[in-house]
């Protein structure tokens, strides 16, 4: 039983990392006033591209980089639609989602289920001198570590730097930011690209760290969950760590339970984080908390000469 628990706890960070990366990326988007429903597609593009590159023998670093490039390309398409062409952001996001899932299906056709080396934790424990539980938590591959540092960096940049100040201003009140000399479209597009990079790394994490293969549909809704997790973490990247650990913990629990042979309602357990997020939304609404944290100009396109 204890062993099961240790194994579960040790596997949580790697399960949480893709959620965290994608959520942090979407927080950048939404703090600049852009709602991006395309994260699922961006993740799929990155996941398939990095596996294909690794299969072609280009090495893990290049595989990761090309995954990021592919995700970035899709994010750029979304950004052009949502920021420059002022397409409804929900619609533009859905297009990016479908395009990413569709094209990744084409790219990965025929290359499914082929194992790649990917990224693994260093052999042997670096933290053997610590208690087993703690060492298990700390023994992670570098991309998982990166996810947590990235979230902290996103928080710091948004809340503590001039760059973040301008980003927040664009998301809260685009006309006022424009008056203050901030190029609204540029900042929003930049936020879409920066968020796209993090979502792409999340996708590459899934295939290179998590599965070591590509399977059609392997993103399995994680990009959508990230959209909901932005609300759950109230647009704050530090709280996103907690939210990601919650979802990661539940996801990590299921394989442990299944391998232990226990008879438990697996789907009910998997449902619980969704219910928790819904419950959080309703409770936040009851106490009018969520409304305060949501960027006021979220979802609203901006053109200076439009009188509003």
């Amino acid at each position: 039983m204890m062993e099961l628990f240790t194994a579960w706890v040790g596997s949580i960070p790697a399960f949480a990392a893709p959620f965290l990366l994608a959520t942090a990326g979407l927080i950048i988007n939404e703090r600049a006033g852009v709602m991006n429903l395309g994260a699922e597609g961006v993740m799929a593009m990155a996941a398939v591209t990095s596996v294909l590159m690794e299969m072609a023998g280009h090495g893990t670093a290049l595989a990761l980089l090309s995954g990021i490039g592919a995700g970035l390309g899709l994010a750029a398409i979304f950004g052009i639609m949502a920021v420059f062409l002022r397409v409804d952001q929900v619609l533009a996001g859905l297009v990016a989602f479908a395009l990413g899932i569709g094209v990744s299906g084409f790219l990965g056709d025929g290359s499914e289920n082929q194992t790649v080396n990917g990224i693994s934790p260093p052999p042997g424990s670096d933290f053997a001198f610590l208690p087993k539980l703690l060492a298990g938590v700390l023994d992670q591959d570098w991309l998982t570590w990166f996810a947590f540092f990235a979230a902290i960096a996103v928080w710091f940049i948004i809340e503590r730097t001039d760059l973040g100040l301008r980003l927040r201003a664009v998301g809260e009140d685009a006309p006022a930011a424009d008056a203050a000399g901030v190029n609204v479209a540029l900042y929003r597009f930049g936020a879409v690209l920066a968020g796209g990079v993090l979502c792409a790394i999340a996708g590459a994490h899934l295939s290179l760290v998590g599965a070591h293969i590509w399977v059609d549909g392997m993103v399995a809704g994680r990009g959508w969950i990230a959209v909901a997790m932005v609300t759950l973490s109230r647009w704050n990247a530090l709280r996103a760590i907690a939210a990601a650990l919650l979802f990661g913990a539940i996801q990590a629990l299921v394989p442990q339970l299944l391998s232990s042979g226990m008879n438990v309602p697996v789907y009910f357990i998997q449902m619980s984080p969704y219910l928790a997020t819904l419950a959080y939304l309703l409770i936040a609404g009851l106490f009018a908390k969520g409304a305060d944290a949501q960027p006021a100009d979220l979802g609203r396109p901006y053109l200076r000469e439009e009188r509003r």
Partner: peptide, 13 residues
């Protein structure tokens, strides 16, 4: 009633 964003709630449901 609660101003919950329907994109997120319908998605979760």
């Amino acid at each position: 009633r609660l101003r919950a964003n329907e994109v997120v709630t319908t998605l979760l449901m």
